[in-house]
């Protein structure tokens, strides 16, 4: 009975402190990482690092406890009491029986074979077979030429503005430029009907039309995987382990020159080099189904939907 009076304060304080510190490392750091990076995915502390922290904490505690006699006596008191059976026979036997089982369980969890998929390293934006001639390509749909603006004005005058077949066929209501519900188009047409041709407005209206067509083509062809707003979260995305690219994510289409994005759309997954695991990519070869100008139009809208702009090709000093 005497031992109970010596008190076990040191034991409980030590256990609680170790518990809190380990919990902070295991859960606190990942929580903080989410708060700092603003990402939904926490950054976990790597297993080996956690192991080292544990060793350091235990060693530190040991040094502290054994530093003077009163601490060590206070620390050992509850342990001794258990072994002496001060808390009753039942408690003694339960502790004696449970401890080896817990130890065995931890060892089991450690040696238990876990089947993990073999990891394949993959380069997301390969350049080993990227043809040089694509590098400096500019999207021809981004800036209308004078001839294109003239043509557009003439078509608007004759009421014969044309749409890409897919946009025309699928959205039967779009047969006329008047059908586009956008400010610049309405303004341009109003002026045109009152007899004045405003070239500046014509250019804006033409760009609205191109963006509209690009969005429509994007929604028809790309949306199933890349999602309505380009987040890589379309309804078909769940089925592919190489997730469709999230265009809004920095590090995807905004770090690439337009020519590169164009090349990837044109040739799809199968023409990737081996370091980019072409056999796993579900990206179709779009040159089979879309014309070059349709693909450029989609890209115009793709960057617009994602709210990013392409990287400028670097100017090589000569």
């Amino acid at each position: 009975m005497k031992s109970k009076k010596t008190g076990g304060g040191q034991f409980w304080w030590t256990t609680i402190t170790i518990g809190i510190v380990l919990a902070l490392i295991k859960y606190g750091i990942p929580w903080l990482s989410r708060w700092i990076t603003g990402s939904d995915l926490p950054l976990p502390v790597p297993g080996t690092l956690f192991f080292f922290y544990t060793i350091i904490i235990l060693a530190g505690t040991f040094v502290y406890i054994s530093s003077d006699e009163t601490t060590i006596v206070s620390f050992l008191a509850p342990i001794k009491s258990v072994f002496r059976g001060d808390y009753g026979k039942l408690f003694f036997f339960v502790v004696m029986a449970v401890t080896p089982v817990v130890a065995g369980y931890f060892v089991f969890a450690w040696v238990k074979p876990a089947v993990v998929a073999s990891v394949t390293l993959r380069i997301q934006h390969p350049s080993s077979n990227f043809p040089k001639k694509y590098e400096a390509l500019k999207n021809p749909m981004r800036e209308p030429t004078d001839a294109q603006i003239d043509e557009f004005i003439e078509q608007a005058n004759n009421n014969s503005v044309e749409y890409f077949p897919q946009v025309h066929d699928e959205g039967k209501q779009f047969t006329n430029i008047r059908h586009l519900p956008f400010g610049p188009v309405t303004k341009f047409l109003a002026k045109l009907h009152s007899g004045t041709t405003d070239r500046g407005l014509a250019q804006l209206a033409l760009m609205e039309k191109r963006l509209f067509e690009g969005r429509a083509l994007y929604q028809i062809n790309c949306r199933p995987c890349h999602g309505v707003s380009g987040g890589g979260d379309g309804p078909m995305a769940y089925g592919f382990s190489l997730r469709p690219i999230n265009f809004t994510d920095s590090g995807t289409i905004d770090t690439l020159v337009e020519g590169y994005t164009f090349w990837r759309i044109e040739n799809g997954g199968p023409s990737l080099p081996p370091e980019s695991t072409p056999w796993d990519s579900a990206m179709p070869v779009w040159k089979h189904d879309l014309t070059e100008i349709e693909r450029w139009t989609i890209m115009l809208a793709e960057y617009d939907i994602a709210g990013v702009s392409p990287r400028e090709p670097e100017k090589v000093a000569r």
């Binding site: 897919q166 946009v167 699928e170 959205g171 039967k172 209501q173 779009f174 059908h179 519900p181 956008f182 969005r215 429509a216 083509l217 994007y218 929604q219 028809i220 949306r223 199933p224 309505v228 707003s229």
Partner: peptide, 25 residues
Amino acid sequence: KEIYDRLCLGCHGMTGKGDGPAASV
């Protein structure tokens, strides 16, 4: 309307009939 024409029209159509260009797929 402005938001609708920009974000919803592709699927739900210009007049809300659910017949936008992407509706067929």
